[in-house]
Each structure stands twice: as structure tokens, then as C-alpha cells.
């Protein structure tokens, strides 16, 4: 069972504000989902390698050459707040 404290911690890590009713609902639903997932413990995986990716590729590099890139105005085109060609956010320090 997932406690409301765990839900609150996970929400904080996820950068999500939750309402009271959401905390209660997610505690209940995440518990149900994790109960189903408990089924995985039945399988012996001691000698199994984890598979994060099906492609047999490791690092993919390109030549260290300057290529075409977006102009500043294109990069900034979808932000709501900008100043002097930069993304603007609330004061940090």
C-alpha cells in the first residue's frame, strides 16, 4: 500500500502540485497498479541481463563539425516570456 506521504514525496520529485482529492486517488490507484506489478517477483531473473534497449547500438557519434542550427528567434518562438534574446524566468537568486 502506498501511503499519502509517499505520494507527496513522489509528486514533489515529479514537480507536480496535487490537490487533496488527487493525493487520495493516486495513493489508491498506484497501490492497485503496483499490486499487479508484484507478479513480476514470481519470476527468477537472477541470471538474466536487463534489456533497456532492443537495438544493438552503443554510443552513436557524429563528426565534430559545426552544422546548420536554428536561429535565435526560432528557438525563442514558442516561449511566452523572453528578454534580450533569452528565456526569461522568475528571479532565482
Amino acid at each position: 500500500m502506498i501511503s499519502r506521504e509517499v505520494v507527496e514525496t513522489v509528486a514533489k520529485l515529479s514537480r507536480l502540485y496535487l490537490e487533496e482529492d488527487e493525493i487520495v486517488l493516486y495513493a489508491q490507484q498506484l497501490s492497485q497498479i503496483l499490486d499487479t506489478i508484484e507478479e513480476l517477483r514470481q519470476i527468477d531473473t537472477d541470471n538474466v541481463e536487463p534489456l533497456a534497449h532492443v537495438m544493438p547500438v552503443e554510443n552513436v557519434f557524429r563528426e565534430d563539425m559545426a552544422g546548420e542550427c536554428f536561429r535565435q528567434e526560432k528557438v525563442l518562438a514558442n516561449t511566452t516570456e523572453q528578454m534580450d534574446g533569452m528565456f526569461q524566468v522568475p528571479k532565482i537568486v
Binding site: L40, E49, L51
Partner: peptide, 9 residues
């Protein structure tokens, strides 16, 4: 990690 191992199976 457990899920990734099961993925391999």
C-alpha cells in the same frame, strides 16, 4: 531493473 530483466525474457 526487474522490469528490464523481464523484458529480456
Amino acid at each position: 531493473l526487474k522490469a528490464l530483466k523481464v523484458r529480456n525474457l
